[in-house]
Design a protein around this nucleic acid. Sequence first.
DNA 1: TTATAATCTTGTCACTGTCAAGTTCGATTT
DNA 2: AAATCGAACTTGACAGTGACAAGATTATAA
Lengths: 204, 204
Amino acid sequence: MYEGAAKARYHHGDLRAVLLEAAEAELSEKSIENFSLRGVAKRAGVSHAAPAHHFGDVDGLLTALAAIGHRRFVALQNVRQKRAVKEGAAQLVAAGLGYIDFAMTNPALFRLMFSSKRPDFCQGELAEAATIAFEKLLDDVGRYRNGDPREDDGVMADAMSTWAMVHGLADLLNGGRMKFLQNLPRKRREELLADMILRAASPG
Amino acid sequence: MYEGAAKARYHHGDLRAVLLEAAEAELSEKSIENFSLRGVAKRAGVSHAAPAHHFGDVDGLLTALAAIGHRRFVALQNVRQKRAVKEGAAQLVAAGLGYIDFAMTNPALFRLMFSSKRPDFCQGELAEAATIAFEKLLDDVGRYRNGDPREDDGVMADAMSTWAMVHGLADLLNGGRMKFLQNLPRKRREELLADMILRAASPG
DNA sequence: TTATAATCTTGTCACTGTCAAGTTCGATTT
DNA sequence: AAATCGAACTTGACAGTGACAAGATTATAA
């Protein structure tokens, strides 16, 4: 099972992982509109039909990729929160800025996760990863609001409001549609974004 | 130039318009991921290469479609506003609900307009339509805030905040991601949406 | 009428995703 | 140690795609 150079072998050990890396590279370069399964195979140095064995079809590969994306998405938010003040508002803002940062750093992956019908969210791996991300949102808003969205519809509305704001900012910035914010220096931009996030999270 | 049945003719009169209708049908049925130029031609009852003459390539057709989408997008918001109370807040909410309604009624077209790299926003027709939609947003927020986003960065920030909220709601509802709001009865949902929109538009 | 240009068709190309059949090879059994 | 089995990967083929070139048809205008 061990090998130094996995290249020349027929059974090559962890092709699945290699294909996922190749797929992410393909996705960032070609964007989802021109994503090609054969292109992924070529990147991985493998025959054009090899991916099918691990992922079934294109959508299967994209589903696996979306799952990985969601896990990194949550991880990035957690990193930001560890660096922030340990208090409800600051933690919520940190998560939101992480959300937005992820979108701007991984534009194609973000689109795959939120604006594509190809990933199958019923599939176990992805369903789980997406649920974790959602539950994290509920937790963060719950902590800020001193309540539980799962039990209090008012807090749940705050959570949806916060999500919409953060997601809208992420999506519009990702699409290059908000030049006003884009052209601001990073620090000033994050100040404004923080203000908007808390606006959305706080009931009138 | 006149003809009752444009079908059997070689030069068929308004193929461009027919193709655009066919393209919209193709888009709603197949969604952008499986949109096919040849499928559009088939729908229009015309040879597979006919669309190229009017739109260049697929992206050209999608660009024209996105332009039409933006015009209908603005029109729907205007309709809602005419039915609403003539006052800043109510007018802003009406526009926002129109925005969201458009997304839910034309999911694939909405995705084409806001989550695709294929339409060319530098192209005249689309650039103009998109600008009109953006300017309308600035006007509506400006009226509500009693200011002009173009001259006051604070009001501009409110406009971006409002846009992000409305767009986030539209995109997430479109993607079927906000079951809490989706399962609410229409009236109750619109109440909550209205509240969120005004939250976003009002500075802390 | 004739020329000209716009409109549409036909044919072809490289590329795509998927499927079926074949090859290689690790692992298990005997 | 040999045989077997099944998983991992390849090869080859097929229909469908977007784009291009070349030809056919028709409106316009000279």
